[in-house]
Design a binder for these strands. Structure first.
Lengths: 209, 209
DNA sequence: ACTCCCTGGATAGTTGTGCTGTCTAGCAAG
DNA sequence: CTTGCTAGACAGCACAACTATCCAGGGAGT
């Protein structure tokens, strides 16, 4: 299909499609004449994916590029591809404060206790966890049991999510499922958590003025 | 204390402090001369809170204002204050697509099934949930059992969080605990979830190339 | 052959957000 | 009376994500 039809099918504005092509988020169409190219279903799907990751996940364009590159690099094993995708989805941690090392040690311990030996030494989320614990630590004592409670809850959820991936799909589809799952089910979970908080807070505080 | 000391204590740049004052995020200091004002611990705490909400939660300034206004409005009961805070922390839902109504019905059903009768009819998160379900729906059939699974997980977490709030604090401290908890434990949870995904995905896919 | 419309590519401009810097003029302490 | 700091007004900036304009080249229909 021509670019005009791609635009019509996806309702992504032409200027934006061109921008994504420029930025390398969308692979070029197959040249049919020097002045036109043929786009196909992979372009439609890619655009839909990019829109979800931007609008639901709020992932900035330069990290989307990392995601796309991981998906297109056939030399990577599936779990290396996932690892890169996981890194790309984590926002960079803020610059370390004075308690970062202590927080990192605690973060590593939480990961250890959760039994997550499959987490890489240099996983972006390992550092992000330390940064988050540091924020907590700056506000007072960190409740270690609380940390393990969250880790257990996260483990239950993550386990179910990975188990639900369809082993038989090809790598691009698998990555797409994984990435969309992380982002939109992540959003789902936080919305549900806030709803739960709203419910339990009215239950607990409805008598106080 | 003078503004210079406030700046020193919080390491927030003077220009930023002035900006927050202008925007109504930080209450003015007590005037001591026409050209100087006295700031106190409430200003230090407020600045720390604003920084966390901005840097960890990524909450934009205009929603921070709504949060601050809820905290300062003494006519509000605690649960009304929480309700406003909850709304302020939810990003506005994207414009509805063709399946929004259907998604809203499903969202309401999920909330009902979770037993969350304390969730307001017009809670921002109720609409956010529908919007998120709509995204899922646009990618294929929505798995209702999956939805309930997430709702249960969210309920367990939210229940523990609300239970851990200290009933005896005053309203401003209570709101601060609640808001910081929502934001930073929310971040903690998503980081842990991604770590769990990384672990389980390497466990499951480490043999595939 | 001629006109029309659409194309890819280059490049410049716009919008929104969150600051950041500069300027002014008023005190107040030494 | 100089020096240092202040509040307040306001303009400017950096970044991200688009968005708009312009250009010249085809191909399709006539």
């Amino acid at each position: 299909m021509l670019v005009s039809e791609l635009v019509r099918r996806t309702s992504v504005p032409l200027a934006t499609v061109k921008y994504y092509l420029r930025e390398g988020l969308l692979h070029p169409g197959r040249r049919i004449t020097p002045r036109s190219a043929d786009y196909d279903e992979t372009h439609v799907r890619r655009l839909a994916l990019l829109r979800i990751l931007r609008e639901v996940g709020g992932i900035p364009v330069d990290r989307l590029r990392a995601l796309v590159e991981a998906s297109e690099d056939d030399r990577l094993s599936v779990h290396d591809m996932f690892a890169r995708a996981t890194d790309a989805m984590a926002s960079p941690p803020p610059p370390p404060g004075p308690h970062r090392e202590e927080a990192q040690a605690l973060a590593d311990e939480v990961i250890e206790t959760a039994g997550w030996s499959g987490v890489r030494e240099h996983s972006a989320n390992r550092r992000k966890l330390a940064a988050t614990i540091e924020v907590l630590r700056d506000r007072g004592e960190v409740d270690e049991r609380g940390l393990h409670f969250y880790a257990e809850a996260a483990d239950r959820i993550a386990r179910a999510e990975i188990a639900s991936l369809d082993q038989d799909k090809d790598r691009a589809d698998l990555l797409e499922d994984m990435v969309v799952g992380t982002v939109v089910y992540g959003e789902l979970l936080s919305v549900l958590r806030r709803l739960g908080e709203e419910n339990h807070s009215t239950e607990r505080f409805s008598d106080r003025y």
